[in-house]
């Protein structure tokens, strides 16, 4: 059976997409070794006074090669002389992907905000 241009285009795109998908899975898979490693980057420029308190946006990244589930992160700072904490949970944190979070305090903290990994589940 003779094939026309449209069929050839579909075949070429199909073979290419399969090759790319399999290639990515194999290359990423073979190098997959490091356990999940959540990291955090504050975005101080975006910190602001919200209606219910001081909002501190952050970006969480997973520096490892494996995904983590139910990642709990705690932020602490001193507000009006009292220690205060804020906790956030991330359902899924895939390897190499970013998740944006916002922590909140009752007012602008006097000290630097520090972060701590409370824990995560291995999927």
């Amino acid at each position: 059976m003779k094939r026309n241009a449209v069929e050839w285009a579909v075949i070429v795109v199909s073979v290419l997409s399969i090759a790319v998908l399999v290639g990515v899975l194999v290359i990423e898979g073979v190098s997959e070794s490091r356990p999940p490693n959540p990291t955090i980057v504050m975005r101080p420029a975006e910190a602001r006074d919200g209606a219910l308190g001081w909002i501190v946006p952050v970006t969480v990244n997973n520096d490892g090669d494996q995904a983590a589930e139910a990642v709990v992160i705690e932020a602490s700072a001193t507000v009006d002389g009292e220690p205060e904490t804020s906790e956030q949970e991330i359902n899924f944190l895939p390897a190499g992907s970013e998740v944006e979070l916002a922590f909140a305090f009752s007012a602008a903290p006097e000290t630097e905000v520090t972060f701590r990994l409370v824990g995560y589940r291995v999927p």
Partner: peptide, 16 residues
Amino acid sequence: ATTSLRDAAGKVGLEA
């Protein structure tokens, strides 16, 4: 843009 290559490949592979 924030999705890692491995994550995207996994999702596409399963949904395909």
